[in-house]
Design a protein around this nucleic acid. Structure first.
Lengths: 152, 152
DNA sequence: GCACGACTTTACGTTAACGTAAAGTTGGTT
DNA sequence: AACCAACTTTACGTTAACGTAAAGTCGTGC
C-alpha cells in the first residue's frame, strides 16, 4: 500500500509547522481549511498539511489570508484545473510580482536615503572633531543632520 | 532680512505635505511635534515643517513613529549635536540598513517562489492543451500547482 | 468515580496609525 | 445679532492576524 491514511491532531500539525493551534483554528474560521471531525475533535490528513503549507507559503509571498482563500476557492470551485483557472492564477501571480518589484524599489530608495543620512552624520562628526581642536562650537541640529540644506 | 517668520495653520501644513490634519495632531499627541499656541489654535513655523518632513521621511525609511520620536528626543535632550548623539544615530541608521537588507532578501526569495509557481502553472497549461488533443483528463489540483512534488 | 491532559467554543484584548463623527470655540464678515 | 469657515477636543471605530483567558467536553488510566 502506498496510500498512508495516517491522521493528525491539531497539536501535531501545529508542532510540525511551528504555528499555534489558535492560528490553525483561525485559518479554518476564515474558510482556508475544512478538516474532518470525529465528534467535536478536528482530524487532519496529508492533504490538510498541503493546505497549511500553502497558507504559510502564501504569507511568505505577501498574500493576505483573504487572498489565499480566493485562490483556494477558485481552485475548489471545480475539481480539475481548467484553463480559466490557470489564467486567473497566472494573472494573480503576475500582479504579486509587480507588487514585489515596487517594494524592492521602495526599499532601494530608503537605503539610498539612509546612506545619505549616514554621510551627513559622519561629516558632522568630523566637523565636531575639528571644532574641538579650534574651539569653535558648531550649531548642528536634527534638521542639519537628516535633511540636506537645499531640500527644504 | 533673511529671517522669514511666516507662520502656518495646521491646514496649510497638511495641504503642503499631503497629509490630514488628523495625522499632524496625532504626531503631536505622540510627542513628535510641539507647535506654539495662540489661544487654542496651533501655529506652525518653518522648523515645524522640518520636523514634519523628518517624520514623513522616517516613515518612508521604515521607522515607526515611536522610533522617530526616540531620535528626536535624543536630539532635543541637548541642543547641539554631541559625539555620543551622533554615534547613537549612526548605530540606529546601521541597524535600519541591516533590516532593509533582510527585507530585500525576503522579497528576493518570494520572487523566486513566485517564479517557480508561474512555471508550474505554465507547464500545467501546456499539459492541459496536450490532454485536450489526446482526450486525456489531467488530475491537477492546487497542491500540484503550487508545491513541487518533492517538497512535501 | 475521579483526576488528568488534550481538545473544544466563546469572546474580549492587542498593535499602529490614523478615520470619522459629534460637539464646542474662535475670528471675521455682513 | 447672526452666520460661517476653520479650528478645537473627545472618543469610539477600523484592519489583520492572531494572543489569551475562561469555561466546558472528551477519552483514558488508575
Amino acid at each position: 500500500m502506498t496510500t498512508q491514511k495516517k491522521s493528525f491532531s491539531i497539536s501535531e500539525l501545529a508542532a510540525e509547522f511551528g504555528v499555534t493551534t489558535r492560528s490553525i483554528r483561525f485559518y479554518e474560521d476564515q474558510g482556508l481549511m475544512k478538516p474532518e471531525r470525529k465528534g467535536q475533535t478536528r482530524i487532519y490528513y496529508s492533504h490538510d498539511k498541503v493546505r497549511l503549507k500553502l497558507i504559510l507559503r502564501g504569507k511568505r509571498l505577501g498574500f493576505s489570508l483573504a487572498e489565499s482563500r480566493e485562490l483556494f476557492d477558485l481552485w475548489d470551485e471545480t475539481p480539475s484545473g481548467s484553463e480559466r483557472q490557470l489564467n486567473k492564477m497566472l494573472e494573480t501571480l503576475s500582479a504579486k510580482q509587480a507588487q514585489l518589484e515596487q517594494q524592492m524599489q521602495d526599499i532601494q530608495m530608503a537605503k539610498q536615503e539612509l546612506d545619505n543620512a549616514e554621510m551627513r552624520c559622519r561629516s558632522a562628526l568630523k566637523e565636531l572633531m575639528q571644532g574641538k581642536e579650534t574651539g569653535q562650537g558648531s550649531a548642528h541640529n536634527t534638521a542639519d543632520m537628516l535633511i540636506s540644506s537645499k531640500e527644504i
